[in-house]
Simulated assay, not measured.
Amino acid sequence: MPHIDYFFATLSPYAYLAGDRLEKIAEKHGATITYKPLDIIALFGRTGGTPPKDRHPSRQEYRAQELVRQAKRLEMPFNLKPAHWPTNMAPSSYAVIAAQNAGGGDLGALCQNLLSACWAGEKDIADDAVIKGALSDAGFDPSLADSGLLAGAETYAANLEEAVERGVFGAPFYITDDGQRFWGQDRLDYLDLHLAGQL
């Protein structure tokens, strides 16, 4: 059975634009997924990247155009300047980690709930009520937002170290069990083809 390690940030617009395509690809190929939320700003610092706010104006302008274009093409609601961005990614990441450990719900839906809350819903994903609502809507016990803090913090830090070690430098980032790496939601078609043995 193929496996995909999915490195992402709960605040990433590109992870939001991935929608549920990763989960559909995994289902199509009988693949399992491990969700690995991480601190994308720390990852940039460790791998030669630059946070969006510190990029050259031409890069910022292109990013703004490209995000809007991609959202339109994917027919997804999108706010280029959400009210609560940037915000603290750690609490929502801890919730994803706790939910993955606990099981019983839909992890893909949880991630998308959090991402869409920021990029389409004008909500602060660092807010406890928003996190608990996302957990509940995805079939998880909302109390996981409180009970998983310690383990979540440890795994969150470990995910960053693993990402650096395995060549991850952005989000979303997908690594298959045979070591193939795919960066960006616009490479999901390549991941699909690879799992089909066609690429």
Rank of each mutant, 00 (worst) to 15 (best):
G108E: 01
G121E: 06
A126D: 08
A98C: 14
Q112A: 13
E122F: 06
P57R: 03
F140V: 04
L135E: 06
A109P: 01
A120Q: 10
G49H: 07
W119I: 11
R55L: 11
L144A: 12
L115Y: 06
D141H: 04
G48D: 13
D54P: 00
W85E: 06
G45P: 02
L114A: 08
D128V: 15
T47H: 00
S92N: 06
G108M: 00
R73D: 13
G49I: 08
L114G: 06
S58V: 10
N113T: 11
V96F: 00
S136G: 13
L107I: 15
E61V: 08
P142Q: 10
P91C: 03
D141G: 08
E66P: 00
L135M: 08
Q100D: 15
M89Q: 03
S143D: 12
G108T: 03
S93F: 04
Y94S: 09
D141N: 12
Y62D: 02
L67S: 09
A117R: 02
G108F: 01
S58L: 10
A120V: 13
A126K: 09
T87G: 14
T50I: 14
P77L: 01
G49V: 12
N113K: 05
A109K: 08
T50F: 05
Q65N: 12
L144I: 14
L43V: 08
D124L: 09
K72Y: 05
G121L: 09
D127N: 14
A117S: 14
E75L: 00
T50K: 00
L80E: 06
A126L: 10
R73C: 07
R63S: 13
G103N: 04
P91L: 01
K53A: 15
A42F: 13
T47G: 06
D124Y: 04
Q112T: 14
L107Q: 10
F78E: 04
A99D: 02
D54Q: 06
M89R: 02
G105N: 07
K123W: 01
N79K: 06
K81P: 00
H84P: 00
L80Y: 01
A98E: 08
T87E: 00
M76Q: 12
F140S: 03
R46W: 05
L107K: 08
P91N: 01
P52E: 12
E122S: 15
M89H: 08
K81L: 01
G49L: 07
A134R: 01
R59Q: 13
G104K: 02
P51E: 04
P57G: 10
F140W: 02
V130K: 07
V130Q: 05
L110S: 09
Q100H: 11
R69F: 10
P57V: 11
V68T: 15
M76L: 09
R46D: 10
A134Y: 04
A95L: 10
G104Q: 07
L144M: 14
E122I: 09
A129S: 14
R46V: 14
P91Y: 02
L115Q: 07
Y94C: 08
P51R: 00
V96I: 07
H84C: 05
L135D: 07
A126T: 13
F140L: 03
G133M: 10
C111D: 05
W119Y: 12
N113L: 05
Q100A: 15
A99R: 01
R46N: 11
L115E: 04
F44V: 06
A42C: 11
K132R: 13
I131D: 02
G108H: 01
P91S: 03
